[in-house]
Design a protein around this nucleic acid. Sequence first.
DNA 1: CGTGCTGTTGATCCCGTTCAATGAGTGTGG
DNA 2: CCACACTCATTGAACGGGATCAACAGCACG
Lengths: 175, 175
Amino acid sequence: MEDGRRGMVGLLLPSDFVGRPGRRAAAYDVAAASDVVMCCFRRGAFEQLIAETPSICKRLLEMTLDELDAAREWMLVLGRKTAREKIASFLATIARRDATLRKGDAVGEIVFDLPLTREAMADYLGLTLETVSRQMSALKRDGVIRLYGTRHVTVPDLGRLLEAAGDDSDGGLPG
Amino acid sequence: MEDGRRGMVGLLLPSDFVGRPGRRAAAYDVAAASDVVMCCFRRGAFEQLIAETPSICKRLLEMTLDELDAAREWMLVLGRKTAREKIASFLATIARRDATLRKGDAVGEIVFDLPLTREAMADYLGLTLETVSRQMSALKRDGVIRLYGTRHVTVPDLGRLLEAAGDDSDGGLPG
DNA sequence: CGTGCTGTTGATCCCGTTCAATGAGTGTGG
DNA sequence: CCACACTCATTGAACGGGATCAACAGCACG
């Protein structure tokens, strides 16, 4: 924002798509928070591809609708959750997609690395970096997560994390 | 949310589209806040129409991308703005689309009716209804808006409203 | 070693919430 | 017509969660 306040409106993870067919300029900056591999398309050729291949357009529509749902879900997080719940929600999101990518070992201990600095997390969650740090410490103290270094996280019990996130309903583990 | 906290993730206004091609169930409730006229399509026929008419799919994609941009814009509002700025941003949004619908008299005094109760505004803005009420009174006291009854609003100077919204850059009135 | 960056922790303050009372508008029934 | 109930809105007082200001620790790098 003009006065220096910063915000993040999305987090792109492996397999995500970025860009807006039909527009020259994006409304937001895209910054790499880690090393990335990108697959790029020339705008003209890509738009032609869309025009000629209805199934691709349909697929893009579905992906965009998914993003929209995610954005709306996040609006609830930003608008109605406490700092602790925001942090827990964020960790749960990362844990979930991480588990999805290397799928298989669904249950048991979850291990992952945070892709963001404390400051970036704060921007994403609408908090200050100090609050992020404090709540991370609090979740660690309460045994909801364990921290090795500042980035490496393990979640011994996903249920407890979801509980801390305010996303109750038990996590819905399939029988 | 499960514990009684409520939130709104979008505001549908005349000419908006709601629904998700390709999904049976919506992730959110849709509630009418005023009298409405809806134009409905049967799912099957509509999806067939999409499949057969690439231009419609393309149009839907564009609309969804616009909604996604709006949702992200709103994430910044929810995450980084003060109560006063949130209220002002909301009023500016309503004023803008209202001016767009009955387009023409762009400049000068803007007049419109709020489509929501204070409580619904609070849910949309991530505030309490008391705070909404207080900030409305504050904006009125400061002369940014005028209130006739609880719903009817006039904005004597859009620039000042945008300033209060934190959306500086002067409103960009064309010469 | 010093410098810079990221993260942690402490102390204090303030904005928005919470709890509570009151007002204003509307519909209902005597 | 007025009393009553009910909903929506305004306003006040007190509290608290997160922001702010500030000090310091860990680590990489020259």
